[in-house]
Amino acid sequence: MEFAIQAEGLRKAYGDHEALRGVDLAVEPGSVLGVLGPNGAGKTTIIRILSTLVEADAGYAKVAGLDVTQQPNAVRSRIGLTGQYAAVDERLTGRENLELIGTLHHLGRSEAKARAADLLDRLDLVESADKLSRTLSGGMRRRLDLAASLVADPVVIFLDEPTTGLDPVSRTVLWGMIREQVKRGVSVLLTTQYLDEADQLADRIAVVDSGQVIAEGSPDELKTKVGGERLHIRIAESADMPEIVGRISTATTATPLVAEDGCTVSIPVDTDFACVSTVAAALDGAPVEVREFAMRRPSLDDVFLALTKNSDEKERTVA
């Protein structure tokens, strides 16, 4: 099967700093790949190579079946790019911005106008369509930015941290817009620093760190790798911890994990929600001040900790 995006062994160095150290990626047509990673992981560099802005030092990449270094212009006519920083011309209106992009895609004047009007309508930007982009809010600007990447009906779109800095409402709106594109059969590569965003949108997730893919899989696969939801119990005095751990151990089969601060203990819950009430009952009447009793999803920190710990362990067992 032909992949929408396929990359092998991508490397890129800036000076003697290696931004990418051999990245492999594959995105099936009509699916969403979430590239998850912290600041400086190399997410933007991956997007820049795949969208023909930067040439890789080594490795090769195909987008929509075309080699990005051999046929950059053909690739460009099939992709849409929404970069990390909203790229709208502040002194043009939203409509003018979209019409300009359409013209530069060689759609022809009337077609460019029609597409701009259609996108403004679909992305709920009609009211601000004829205001200078400078006056738009961050969320609207981001929406306009996304619209600009959709002008020429791309088959592959790249979104570099599309919702960073947006409020929850704008975020949800943008997610909806991305889902709509996927429904139309568009393939998407999006980068993000938020696990829940990748979880919400992506069919598959690639976790990158220091220029390498350290894990790849469906959101569920990754979650099981990291461990699912955990029950966190925080107490006032670390001196009471042995008491708590003892009570949990007798009540459940799960292994309690005490955090570094000595005041928080957590146990995996996964799908066994009954253990929550068991633990609650076990703590009932204990002479300990419980400050917090809560279910928590693994955060990006947990994912990284778990994944880097795994790879450390693997290296150790190999050695």
């Binding site: 820049r48 969208s51 023909t52 802005l53 212009n73 053909a74 460009r76 006519s77 992709i79 849409g80 790019l81 970069g83 990390q84 920083y85 909203a86 790229a87 709208v88 011309d89 502040e90 992009i101 530069l104 895609h105 060689h106 600009a148």
Partner: peptide
Amino acid sequence: NGLVDRFRSLP
């Protein structure tokens, strides 16, 4: 402001 990236991604 990132406009160059956008323009350069166009054919």
